[in-house]
């Protein structure tokens, strides 16, 4: 793998192909946990961490176990099992060795199993036929992109507390409108580079 294609994927998965604003993944926890910046940062870092490792593990399982056996159609069930098991393992590991980190991240970890961004990253990796090196950059970049998105939204949402939003739009509605505007600004990066 040459380093430029990896870097290109890394930058593109943070900005131009941001997993939340371009692919709409991980919306559920994005809507629920974007009330405060500190919560958003905690969840964002937990997602980055889990996404980075699960894409790598799923890459190895997919190309070294499922493909040789001709079992590609089982990939959904295997990926979700790997994610659930990894999250469980990390939770036990962190609880045992770093209680501080556990208190910071612990409450977010169970939420992550059902975060579609994590599964989506693994599925994109297969559909876009990334090499192993590219997968590393893609997993890290997508996680950071998601963390960036939720932190931006939390910052803006703290401000909407002081504004007079029409009643039916409060809560989810206004978040959607803000997300649309942020998505437009992220589209501005599209001239820079893109991956498919």
């Amino acid at each position: 793998m040459d380093i430029t294609s990896g870097l290109k994927i890394f930058i593109a998965s943070i900005f131009t192909n941001n997993i939340l604003f371009a692919s709409f993944l991980g919306m559920c926890s994005f809507l629920v946990c974007s009330n405060r910046i500190s919560t958003a940062l905690g969840l964002g870092s937990a997602v980055t961490f889990v996404m980075f490792f699960t894409t790598i593990i799923n890459y190895l399982i997919y190309y070294y176990i499922l493909v040789p056996l001709g079992l590609e159609f089982l990939s959904f069930i295997i990926f979700i099992a790997v994610i659930a098991a990894f999250v469980q393992f990390v939770e036990m590991f962190v609880e045992r060795f770093s209680p501080d980190l556990y208190y910071a991240l612990g409450i977010f970890l169970p939420l992550i199993t059902v975060n579609c961004a994590i599964l989506g990253a693994s599925l994109f990796m297969v559909i876009r036929e990334y090499s192993f090196g590219e997968t590393i950059f893609f997993g890290l970049g997508s996680g950071l992109g998601w963390a960036l998105a939720i932190t931006l939204m939390a910052g803006l949402r703290e401000k909407t507390g002081y504004t007079n939003v029409p009643r039916p739009l409060r809560g989810t509605g206004i978040v959607m409108l803000i997300a649309g505007i942020i998505a437009m600004t992220f589209m501005g990066f599209a001239g820079m580079m893109s991956v498919q």
């Binding site: 709409f24 039916p168 739009l169 989810t172 509605g173 206004i174 649309g180 998505a183 992220f186």
Partner: peptide, 18 residues
């Protein structure tokens, strides 16, 4: 494109919730 989806859903929520 992506922003259109957010705007349409926001309007949809607005209408149904009203």
């Amino acid at each position: 494109m992506a922003p259109g989806a957010f705007f349409v859903l926001a309007v949809f929520l607005w209408v149904t919730r009203t």
